[in-house]
Amino acid sequence: MTGIVKWFNADKGFGFITPDDGSKDVFVHFSAIQNDGYKSLDEGQKVSFTIESGAKGPAAGNVTSL
């Protein structure tokens, strides 16, 4: 699925993605970002991701920028 990064705190390594389908915002951890180098996201960035079952509920996985 796709969405827009609502916010991401690079110091803490997590944030939230707002899915394009209008569903509830999804937690994203830096370890789910699939790019080389520094793993961070920018507010407003368009991303593709999967929904994984995290310890505290749904979380984004396999996050790639579009």
Rank of each mutant, 00 (worst) to 15 (best):
G15T: 01
K6G: 03
K46A: 11
D36R: 10
D20V: 06
A55C: 12
L66I: 13
P58V: 13
G57A: 06
A60D: 01
T50H: 09
P58A: 10
K46D: 04
G54Q: 13
K39P: 09
T64R: 14
S31R: 10
T18A: 11
Q45Y: 05
T18Y: 07
K24T: 11
S31G: 06
Q45I: 08
E43T: 15
F49G: 00
S65F: 15
I17S: 00
G44K: 05
A60E: 01
I4H: 09
T50P: 01
A32F: 04
D11I: 14
T64F: 10
I33K: 02
E52W: 11
V28D: 00
F49A: 01
F30H: 09
D42F: 15
F27W: 08
V63A: 03
G22I: 03
D42M: 14
K39R: 11
N9R: 12
K6D: 02
V63N: 01
K6Y: 04
H29C: 05
G61V: 15
W7N: 03
S48I: 12
K46I: 11
V28T: 03
A10R: 14
D25P: 07
N35Y: 12
D42V: 15
S23T: 12
E43F: 13
T2M: 09
V47P: 00
D21S: 07
M1F: 13
V47T: 02
M1R: 11
G44R: 05
A10M: 11
K12S: 07
S23E: 07
T64A: 11
I17E: 00
V5H: 01
K12W: 12
S23L: 06
L41I: 06
G13I: 02
Q34M: 13
L66P: 06
T64W: 10
T2N: 06
I4Q: 08
F27G: 01
I4D: 03
A10W: 11
V5L: 04
E43S: 15
G37S: 10
F16I: 06
A55R: 13
G37R: 09
N9T: 05
I17Y: 00
K12G: 05
K56M: 11
D20P: 03
G3N: 00
D25N: 07
F8G: 01
K56Y: 14
G3M: 01
I51M: 11
K39W: 08
I17A: 01
G15Y: 02
T18Q: 11
S53D: 12
G22F: 06
T50M: 09
I51Y: 10
M1A: 08
I51T: 06
G57T: 05
M1T: 08
Y38H: 12
G37M: 09
T50G: 04
W7K: 04
G22E: 05
M1H: 11
S40L: 11
A59I: 14
K56W: 15
D11P: 08
